[in-house]
Structure formats: structure tokens, C-alpha cells
Write a protein that binds this DNA or RNA. Structure first.
Lengths: 240, 240
DNA sequence: GAGTGGTCTAGACCACCCC
DNA sequence: GGGTGGTCTAGACCACTCC
């Protein structure tokens, strides 16, 4: 069950084990889980290690603790942690749709003042600009303009853009994408948006602007997307 | 600096101390903070206690750790933790606007099937229904329909609704509001919405539906709000 | 090799809940 | 009083970074 000589940390093994039990329904919402000391004894590990595992699950919303009473499985909403940063591809897959993409253009341009501000670089600095139509189940979902500083993410090619920019940044360049901030607003499709999205001019759209940051806070991406309101809803969980 | 005999936990004191230094600017983004062992020695506390303080600050985004190198102050997020659950009042205040409210109606009604589903109660079960126009700087911001199970939140009055429902739930009833999930979509104002919001029919609006939950997962509120798109943008931070 | 964070131990005492 | 989570200690060894 728990391998003490594994290179995988013990607290992590315990975490996954518990997540499995919850996902499988063997631990149901409202159930008390065994006491920390019990797990420690059962697996011959220290109580602090058990706590490390549980604390993370509490932070992720799987469990909640009540002092003096115990640790309990929280109500699980099917719409899971949607405040997780996802690429379009990951987002669509989570929604059970098949993502697709049509590249409209891909080039290096000098940053406008707005783009430069969003990316924290000099005006006229070189940025990759990608314009794409994003598809879900082969139907237009969003029109997306993507800007990435060329001095930070070097060697981007059309091929990579067609595969996965995030994978390239994370796996090839070894940069750690850490967080993003989005501004979401409601708007009405312009003529251009309407044409690309195959909707009528004046239809409602959801405009999402995103700044993406690395672990050290450097902006790595600015995206401006127009989503079809008839196809896209934004879901999020918030903690008090 | 750190009081070991205080009823306030040591890790918490250290946390606040560090937050202060960061907020005051004495620790700037990118700075390395002293090593964990250094803090332990300096304050005569255990390294695990130091780690407990730092870990929480890492989770909150104040710091990030790089193995083998050190712990560093993260770039300040200007638009702060906006994935925090807020009441309308708190939201507007955070935006520097003065919140206001016009109560249109307040009554107990039997739950429709949709409301019952959202609140996890029986159809036709008693719920408080509040209809309000939400103002910001005295101008309509949103039209809000709010539903609260009458068997859970007892004794709600018009007076309380005009003050703060959340305060009543949290401070008077001692229920712990823990999290909410929202579904956000883009839409177009109906005649009714247009009249209340003082915009033209067909103007863009942002439709936000919210389910609010207590710590044990019980739904405590269902809200359906139509925000004026010309006045309201939704901002959020996401972690990868 | 020196210094850093990452993981882990085997205890301890406290505050709180429930009987 | 017995059980629970909350806090804390004083060590230990490992993996990683940098020189």
C-alpha cells in the first residue's frame, strides 16, 4: 500500500491513496476518515507525515478538519477545481469536447504599447503573434489572439504552435508556468468576430483577456479571446 | 519580535511578520529571504515551525521556493486574490466603488425544481426569495435574485437583508460559509433587465449564477445576477 | 563541498469535542 | 476521561544548485 523505500514521497503516496478512495466513492462526503495517529500506526510512519498529506488534501478541498472531532470528506462538486490554469486544449478536454485549431497567422511583430504593458517588455520589442480560431467538436468556439515575448520564449515555430505551446515552454524550455490572471467581460460580436465564429454580428460573446506568468513573476503570455456565448460558459470555484 | 509564550502560534507570528516586510517593501520581489535554518536559529524555534509559516505564504503566492537555491519573494500581484468568495458589498468595496442596494421584493416562496436542485432541498420546500437592484456609486450595476433555504437560515428579516446576509449567517447563526461555485455567461439584456438596469434592451450583460456552500458542503444560497457589461468586469487569478 | 529546500521521525503538550 | 486535531521540537538524511 505505502512503499517506504520508494522514491515517491510517502506523504504523496498517502495523498493519492486517499484521493482514489474518495473518487471511487469508498469514502463518501460526510464520512470521517481514520484519525491521524491511526494512519501513522497503520503505515508505520510519523504523524507529521500523515498531516502533510492531509493538509494538502484539505487545501485542495477534498477534506476538512474539525478540531476535537476528526477529519471529514468534503462534499465533492462534480465541477471540479476549475480555478486551475488550463490551456484551451486542456479546457475543452475537461468539458468532454474535442479541441481543434485553425491557425490564421503566425509572425513576429513589434509590441504595441498595450501588448508591451501586458508583457512587461519595451514597446516595439519583438513578440510572437498568433491568431487562431479555436474549435470544439469541429465548430468554432473562440477567436484567439496570442502574444508571447520572442526574447523569452525563443525558437517558437508554426509546428509547435500547432501542437502545444505550453508543452514547449514547460518541457523544452524548462520554464515553469505558474499562474495567470484573467479579465472576463461580456460583449457583442463585431463583424470580424462574427465571420470567424460563424455567428451573427451583434450576438453575445465572452471576451477573456489573460496574462500568464512564470514562477518568478515574469509575464510569458498575453491572450485575448472572444468566445461564443452560446457555446461557452465559464465555471469557477471560490473559497471564502 | 517573536513571542514564544504568546497564545498566538509562532508560525502565525512569523507569517505576519514576513507579510509585513513584503507589504512595506523591505522585502522586494525577487529578493531571497533568509534560509529556513537561519530563521530557526535567530528566533530559537524549530525549522519545521519556520517551514509551516513559509509553506502557507508560498500557497498564498507571497513566496516561491527553489530547491537548492532558496526562498524568494514573488512578484506582487496587483489584482489580489480575486478567487476569494466575496459578497457584492465586499466586491464593490474592493473595486473602490460605493455599494448600494434597492430591495424590490422579499418573501418566502416554495422552491421551483431548479432552485430546489441548486439548494439540495425538496421541491416546494420553503426558500427566502430576495430580488434586488445592486448599485455602485448610486448607478445600477446588477439585478440579483437570491434564494436561501428557510429551514437552514432561520429568522431572516427585511432589515437583515438590507444590512448583510453574510454577516447574519456567519456571526449570528454561526454557520461557516466556505466556498461557492459560479457559472458565468455572456448574454443580452431582456426587456425587464434593461428597465431595472437602465440600459437598452439588447445590451450585453454578464449572467452570474452562484451556489454557496457551508464547510460541510450544505448549499446555503443560490444567486442569479445580471451585471451590466459596460460597468462590470470579472477578474480572477489562476494557479497552474 | 557548502548551502539550500524536501522529506521524515518520534516524540511532546495543548485546545477542543463528546460522553 | 479519552479521543481528536493544532502546534512544536531537535534532530536526520536526501536532492539540488553553485562554486
Amino acid at each position: 500500500m505505502i512503499k517506504k523505500d520508494s522514491p515517491i514521497p510517502i506523504y504523496y503516496q498517502l495523498q493519492e491513496l486517499l484521493k482514489d478512495l474518495i473518487d471511487k466513492g469508498e469514502l463518501k462526503p460526510g464520512d470521517a476518515i481514520p484519525a491521524e495517529r491511526e494512519y501513522a500506526e497503520k503505515f508505520h510512519i510519523s504523524r507529521m507525515t500523515v498531516r502533510q498529506a492531509l493538509t494538502q488534501l484539505v487545501n485542495e478541498g477534498y477534506l476538512h478538519r474539525i478540531q476535537g472531532k476528526g477529519t471529514f470528506v468534503s462534499e465533492r462538486k462534480i465541477e471540479q477545481p476549475l480555478h486551475r490554469l488550463r490551456s484551451f486544449t486542456e479546457d475543452m478536454e475537461a468539458r468532454g469536447l474535442t479541441p481543434g485549431s485553425q491557425l490564421i497567422s503566425f509572425e513576429i511583430i513589434p509590441a504595441t504599447s498595450q501588448i508591451a504593458a501586458q508583457l512587461g517588455i519595451q514597446e516595439y520589442g519583438p513578440v510572437y503573434e498568433m491568431k487562431r480560431i479555436r474549435l470544439a467538436d469541429d465548430v468554432p468556439m473562440a477567436l484567439e489572439f496570442n502574444y508571447i515575448p520572442a526574447n523569452l520564449v525563443k525558437g517558437l515555430t508554426e509546428q509547435i504552435v500547432k501542437e502545444s505551446v505550453y508543452s514547449y515552454i514547460e518541457d523544452q524550455l524548462n520554464l515553469e508556468i505558474d499562474q495567470a490572471s484573467q479579465v472576463i467581460e461580456s460583449s457583442i460580436a463585431t463583424q470580424v468576430e462574427a465571420e470567424f465564429l460563424k455567428i451573427k454580428k451583434g450576438s453575445p460573446i465572452m471576451l477573456i483577456q489573460q496574462q500568464t506568468f512564470l514562477k518568478d513573476g515574469t509575464p510569458v503570455e498575453y491572450v485575448r479571446s472572444s468566445y461564443r456565448a452560446d457555446r461557452y460558459k465559464f465555471m469557477i470555484n471560490m473559497k471564502r
